[in-house]
Nucleic acid binder design. Structure first.
Lengths: 216, 216
DNA sequence: TAGATTGTTAATCGATTAACAATC
DNA sequence: TAGATTGTTAATCGATTAACAATC
């Protein structure tokens, strides 16, 4: 598997390919051409071929792509071919929602700890985990192999906790707090921001523009 | 306010500007130059000026931008200058998390109904709403003015419910289910997808590439 | 072999950045 | 007026699409 420098535009799209391939597998489809996949996903066949070729020839001329092996290959690129431990910091509803999300487990993500600073939440069972006091987080990270942390706490606390996480070996932060953590850490710490309120604003913005266009 | 055709790349960035302007207001900053803002946000000053100019001259030569008025203007573009009602379909933890999220209210989004098909959840209070049975959704939409619906239900049910929503006047769907609803509806229905599992895969993908680069 | 479909190069399109004249 | 900083045009860069030769 040759990896050229892959643009983030391609990385953005990979999980979506993966999802469609998963659906194809469920349907029992064995092979698919870029043209057929392009119809389903409504992107150009050209783009599909370009994207997949970044990783070396997954396809075969005159045949197309084998769904199962393409699925496996993309899974490897996404790092889904191994179990990955994860902690969740912030045991509120959002943290609980993430912990309960069964599908993550199917992808190899395993929540091994949930932490909160609120004593009312500490001790509560969420799926297979009991919420622990956040003061125990550092020790926990030292004694467990975890690279990924989800951060579902308020903005004000996020930076401090993020530093603690990184200082204790966390390599990737799935950040739901409204701070741009990426500006605070060196490049080799992976940050994926999910800013829900910004997403809602985009929705509202598009809706607003619709109204505009309808008016004028 | 002149509105040229605005690229989605710009719309993507607007909420982030809005957030930074909000922070500046909290700090009591009255004016800011594109250069200074560019430092804070770590984007180019050029991009900021280009972006803001899509909407007509918010700035003033030799002075910069007035934080308060720029904040207000962007707020208008984002449609935050008026109250917007919203229903949540799916009363699980994720739906509850969204309903509880206070900050949305600050932005004018008001959750006026939560629905679920699970009888165990029906009747439960979440913030100011009591979860209702999903069978009552259509009637509710007919008798209330709502344009926005958040969809936090499993993939399999999403399409059917989305059709019901659209048939009953919903104009914008904030979609957390793992389906591309945008492929199913005409262009004037606004869809904003939040695919959390894909977000986590991107995180994992970047982490995976880090490891690669470290190795070889 | 003929047909299908990829891999890959070249052309186009759009978005970002640089530069500078306009103007507060 | 002089200095600062925008608005805006032009240049660059990157990503998407089109086209077609390679090959299964």
């Amino acid at each position: 598997m040759i990896q050229k420098e892959i643009s983030s535009a391609v990385i953005e799209r990979l999980p979506r390919y993966y999802r469609y391939l998963d659906e194809l597998l469920e349907e029992g489809v064995e092979r698919i051409s870029s043209a057929e996949l392009s119809r389903r996903m409504s992107v150009t066949a050209s783009q599909i071929r370009q994207d997949l070729n970044h990783f070396g020839g997954f396809g075969q001329q005159g045949y197309g792509y084998n769904v199962q092996s393409l699925y496996n290959e993309i899974g490897k690129i996404l790092g889904l071919d191994r179990a990955q431990n994860m902690v969740i910091v912030g045991g509120g509803r959002l943290g609980q929602a993430l912990a309960n999300y069964v599908r993550f487990e199917k992808r190899g993500f395993r929540v091994i700890g949930i932490f909160d600073r609120n004593p009312n939440l500490v001790g509560m069972w969420v799926r297979q985990c009991q919420i622990q006091y956040v003061g125990q987080l550092a020790d926990f990270l030292k004694s467990h192999e975890v690279e990924i942390a989800a951060l579902t706490i308020p903005r004000d606390e996020a930076e401090e906790v993020a530093r603690l996480l990184v200082d204790n070996g966390i390599r990737a932060i799935w950040n739901f707090a409204h701070v741009d953590l990426n500006l605070l850490f060196p490049e080799d710490i992976v940050i994926e921001n999910v800013h829900l309120s910004e997403s809602l604003m985009r929705l509202s913005c598009k809706l607003n523009r619709e109204r505009w266009q309808a008016d004028g």
